[in-house]
Design a protein around this nucleic acid. Structure first.
Lengths: 242, 242
DNA sequence: AATCAGGTTTGATCTGGATTAAGTGTCGGG
DNA sequence: CCCGACACTTAATCCAGATCAAACCTGATT
C-alpha cells in the first residue's frame, strides 16, 4: 500500500504504528479499558520531527502532552544571552508536558529532537475528560507527576551539592541495576546522542565533562571507546560517587 | 479551661484552631463539601514543632502530607559532608510532602521548623480515598503538583543560568505584584527568618548574599534595614534581573 | 551597664570549573 | 584518496563565588 499522506511523500518512509497498541504500553495508559484507549487515541496525533527540529519552544501555549515513540528529544532553556541548558533527555516511552495541562501557563522549556523522532501528541481535553471518568487514571497521572517532581528534586540536590565528577558518576550509574556486574559481566553505558548534550544535562561544559571521563579512565574505573563507556570497577565507582 | 494535653503543660499555650475551617481555606480543599471536609479532618492531626525542631528527616517513610498553619518550615538536604542546602521555605497556608504519597519512596529532604510552628498532618489513606470519590479534588491535586513542578523547573533555570545577583533580585521581586510601586508607594520585602537561610535557598553563601545586597544598596536600587529591604527603584531592579 | 550569643558584614585569599583557543580523530561524500 | 564538517580532546588562562578569618551588630540575659 502506498502512503496516502501527501506531506510524507518527500520524506523517508515513516514506520507506522498502531496508536492504541503503543499507548497501552505507556505506564500512564496501561490498565485502561479498550473504550478508554479508543477515546484517548481519537485525540492523539502523530508528530514527526527531524533531527534538530524544534517540537515546542519557550512561550508556546500548551495544547496537550507528548510521548516519544522512537528517537530522542531534549528539554532545555535558553538564557537571554543565548546560552542553552539541557534539563532532561526524553527517550522512547517517556513523555513530557503533562504538568502544563493542569496550570494555565506556556512552556518554559523548549523541546528539540536529537535524532529523527516520532512523538504522539495527546490533546489536553481528552486527558482532562478521562480524569473525571477514571480515578485509576488520575492516580497514575499523579504518580507520574510525583515521580518527575522527585527526580527534579534529586537533580537540584546534584546541582547544588555534588561536584562535577560526582554528577558524572551518578549519570553513569543511574540506569545500572543494583545486581549488575556482580557476576563479572561487563557493564556498558551508551553516551548517545553526544557528550555535549549530556554535559549540559549535568550542568557542565563539554571540556569539563571530557576531562572527568579522562580522569576516571586514568584511575582505572572506566574505559571510554567513543560513545560507549565500559565500567571496569563498579564497586569503586559507586564508592567515589557517594 | 486548663489544657489537658500533658505534653503541653510545660509549653507555651498553643493557639487552637478549627481544623475544618483552616483546611477549607487551603486551595487544595476549597470547594469541598462539608462531608468531604469532615472525612479529611478526621484523618488530620495537629503537629507542633518548636523553632529548630525537625518535623521529617531524610529517609523517613511518608505517611501523609503537611500543611503549615502558622510559623515557617524549611525543606532541604544534607550532603554526606554535612553541608546543608535549603530547597524551599514553606509559609502558612503552604504544604509539602504531597508527591511522596503517590510513589512509594521515603523523604529525600528534611523539614525543620524555622520558628515555633503548627502544622496539620493529613493522612495518606484519607487523601487516596477522597481522590477516588471526587474528580475535582484529583484535578486540584494535579494542579498543585504541577505548580510545584513548574516552580522547581524555574529554580533549576535560576541555579544553572542566572548569576548570584540575578537570583537575589528574582527573590526580592518574586512576590511583588506587577502593579506595585507604580503609585510611588514604597515596596518592602521581609527577610525573615534570616539571611543565611535565604542565601542557602538561593544556593550561595551568606557572605556572598550579604555582598550582593551591599552592592544593590550602593547602586541605589534598594535600602537594607536589618531584615527589611526597601525597594527604591523597582523598574531598574526589574531590568537588572532580566 | 556589662556579658554573651547569634546573626551579619568585611576583607584577604583560594579554587573548581568556565573560557578561549588550538589541536585531533573520524566519518560520509565527492 | 582527499576534503570538509562535526564531535571531541587538550592545554593555558581567567573569574565568580567559596572559604577562611576577623570584626561588628543587636537584642536578650544577668
Amino acid at each position: 500500500m502506498p502512503d496516502h499522506d501527501p506531506t510524507a511523500i518527500a520524506r523517508k518512509s515513516r514506520p507506522q504504528i498502531r496508536i492504541q497498541a503503543f499507548l497501552a504500553n505507556v505506564p500512564l495508559f496501561s490498565e485502561m479499558s479498550a473504550d478508554e484507549l479508543d477515546r484517548i487515541a481519537a485525540a492523539t496525533l502523530p508528530v514527526y520531527a527531524q533531527k534538530g527540529e524544534t517540537v515546542c519552544r519557550t512561550g508556546d501555549p500548551c495544547t496537550g502532552f507528548h510521548v516519544v515513540v522512537y528517537g530522542q528529544v531534549k528539554l532545555g532553556f535558553t538564557s537571554p544571552q543565548g546560552i542553552e541548558k539541557v534539563v532532561e533527555i526524553i527517550r522512547p516511552g517517556q513523555s513530557f508536558g503533562e504538568a502544563l495541562m493542569f496550570i494555565d501557563k506556556p512552556y518554559i522549556v523548549f523541546a528539540q529532537a536529537l535524532a529523527d523522532t516520532m512523538l504522539l501528541h495527546v490533546c489536553k481535553h481528552a486527558v482532562i475528560e478521562e480524569l473525571g471518568r477514571d480515578p485509576g487514571f488520575a492516580r497514575r497521572m499523579l504518580a507520574g507527576l510525583s515521580r518527575r517532581l522527585h527526580g527534579l528534586v534529586r537533580d537540584v540536590e546534584a546541582y547544588t551539592l555534588r561536584s562535577g565528577a560526582e554528577r558524572v558518576i551518578g549519570y553513569l550509574l543511574r540506569d545500572v541495576p543494583d545486581g549488575a556486574g556482580a557476576d563479572g559481566a561487563p557493564v556498558e553505558v551508551n553516551l548517545t546522542p553526544g557528550k555535549s548534550v549530556i554535559a549540559s544535562r549535568l550542568n557542565m561544559t563539554p571540556e569539563h565533562f571530557s576531562r572527568i571521563l579522562h580522569d576516571l579512565a586514568a584511575g582505572g574505573l572506566i574505559k571510554v571507546s567513543g560513545r560507549t563507556i565500559r565500567i571496569l570497577d563498579l564497586a569503586r565507582l559507586r564508592g567515589d560517587g557517594g
